[in-house]
Design a protein around this nucleic acid. Sequence first.
RNA 1: GGGCGCAUAGCUCAGCGGGAGAGCGCCCGCUUCACACGCGGGAGGUCCCUGGUUCGAUCCCAGGUGCGCCCACCA
Length: 804
Amino acid sequence: MEPLYKPQGIEELWQQTWEEEGLYAADPDPSRESFVIAHPPPNVTGDLHMGHALQLSLADALVRWQRMKGRNVLFQPGFDHAGIATQNAVEQHLALEGKTRQDLGREAFVERVWEWLHEYGGKIMLQFRRIGASLDYRRERFTMDDAYVRAVMRFFVHLYRKGWIYRANRIINWCPFHQTSLSDLEVVHEQRDDALTYARYPLADGSGHVTIATVRPATMLADVAVAVHPEDERYRELIGKEAIVPFAERRVPIVADARVEMGFGTGALKVTPGHDPMDYEIGRDHDLPELTVIGPDGRMNDEAGELVGLTQAEADERVLAWLKERGQLEKRETHRHSVALCARCERRIEPLISLQWWCRMDELARPAIEALREGRVRFHPESQHRFALRSLEEAPDWNISRQIWWGHQLPVWTCPDGHITVEETDPDACAECGSTELAREQDVLDTWFSAALWPFATLGWPEDTPDLRAFYPGDMNTTARDIIRLWENRMIFAGLELMGDLPFRDVVIHSTVNAADGGRMSKSLGTGLDPMETILHQGADATRYGLLKMSSAQDVRFSYGAIEEGRKLTNKLWNVSRLILANVGGARPEARPRALEERWILARLEATREELERDLASFDFARCVDRLYHLTFDDFCDWYAEAIKPRLYDGDEDARATALAALERLLKLLHPVTPHVTEEIWTNLPARSTRLIVAPWPEPDAAYADAPAGLDRVQEAAEIFRRSGVRVPLEDEERRIFEAVAKPERVASNGDADAEIERLRGEIVRAQQMLANERFVQNAPAKVVEAERDKLARYRRELDALSG
RNA sequence: GGGCGCAUAGCUCAGCGGGAGAGCGCCCGCUUCACACGCGGGAGGUCCCUGGUUCGAUCCCAGGUGCGCCCACCA
């Protein structure tokens, strides 16, 4: 064993060994209680980023802990087909050849996606392995697997037959590039500068005009009204009159609607239900027609008359020229506002009215809402639970159709008479008229529609499989905040609806790791940090440790120091193991706590075990790694190892046997966080037959719980000695340890007895004052008062010792 | 416009009603036979501001300021 621990090579070796020896494998076993995490499937084309790495570190710590505790662990891996993301990636790739997906046609394009995936997809699972995530990689699933597709079809048909799926014209977010609708959650907003045009709409009775403000003059062609606020004094007279829309020269009513903001622009709004979500709402409430002048390609359509085929920018110019010519262009000013962009291609969203498939949410969400209210499933932290619940309660109907090519095509067929047939597999004939001329719906399902089935479709549902019976329901799931509504909530209601049970009990919402400057980590901004880099340099163990340390707050800045701390921990552990292993002779691990420091370290290990279990059970990973650090550095290395060194060298059999036993225990406690270095040291322990990964987690043990007060006294004595140079009286046993660890010859000169005496006197006065305060003594908890009395006694003792 | 979170040492963060902490960085001293990626010592802080509750507030409450994130239909 080299003095410097080098994770490179060792980590890969163990990852390979664990997997090859089947130690990640999960098989149904009715005799054992299961522990199941269906890990969030990354995009099939994705690369490991910090979010994944944090998520894996967290889940794997739990998984390894539970595996050691004897649970039958299933840690489920797999990929999501990620409809738009993947299609976008392949389209970008095609663009290099100067081709579009339309050039290929649907069938050839989908074929191309599969080819592309075989070449570039799935690489992320190698990175999952490299961080040491103990997933059962044999069970890798893909949302486009044949079996999974059947599950998706079953889900759709199930919802359809319940009458919860319907088709309707609504205004939706349309991406002109991807030529698809997007859910609100797939749209991002960005601040942009636009020109705000003030245009005059003449009143039909010739009594003047009303001026509106717009950033999209071209949409005037689809205006069907002008709206003002009902309480706006300026326009009260105008309500009920008619205005003439420029360019279109159409008479439209002037209506009153409270959604108009009086303070914005002129306080008068052009109403364009076909091309603006709020106008759409206003239009519906006022029974206004819905005109559409922009087509799915983002250009002006047939309804735009002479402007047909123009881009919106061109059409804007034409309308502006028209206004200017007639003196109806009042002014233009710069206006900064947020615009909707496609989350994938960052092109502007076109709000369009379009025929889409929807899933009603009221009945589907109800059992999920109940489950959250009753706490049968819990989001952590609590604030996110409230958010998840509110999101379910307010969930609007779900737009489940997408007009892209890569995904699960809707299992809906239409005959020439327009009858609709919905079946899981290709039907032979129309269910209504028997026609055999059936055309399948072109739309595919929202990616999250299939993802909602992940916890059970991966286990073989809708078949009744042994896997499903053994591993459903699962235990926990973990994601980032923004996935709560997209995925977590949907898994919950899908599980309740289809399986009759919750997919998990706990959802851990982990922190977002930001770049070191506090901004978002983003590949395109170059602020992204690649976890594979830190794995390569500091090791997977150090990376896991560091990320867990960063997992506490809602948002944290990436801290290189946290990873470095993890690396130092592995190195420290490595070296203290060297010390013990080089000096135990032929001893076998056995707790023979004869000496004070032995009873003490065993008690510390036992106390920490208990604390760690509490931390892990409450998903407080940051506290957990903090404890492990102090246990290893302060307790195990600084005190215990220093104290027993002389006895190890002397060949004291009790010290040797106990040191091995203590080290074993330390390795077990550390394994969930730093699996590789602990397993490596474990194999160097004498007479090991099992791997640490499956070694039993320490049970509560009374023999380890005996915490002597003596060592604490030694520590105190050393503290006083260091500060003051004055020795305090110690028992012989205590003195032996004191001599081993206090190193008096090098610290005596630094002491300052007077300052220490001064400090102690101050403390004594303070404590006396507090104890003299009746209200304190009466009102403070008994424990606090007692602690204060203890302190006073201790300070007096120390002062006596000092002033001799 | 709503919702959530954060403000503690130069940096990253713990602590959260009675002594202000860790890691890194910095300064000083140590090639001590596990580890110089180490060991020992040290400097460094109106715990964001203002009020309130309390015998006592970094901690609880209210307001303010600054920052971050999420959501939302501002033309």
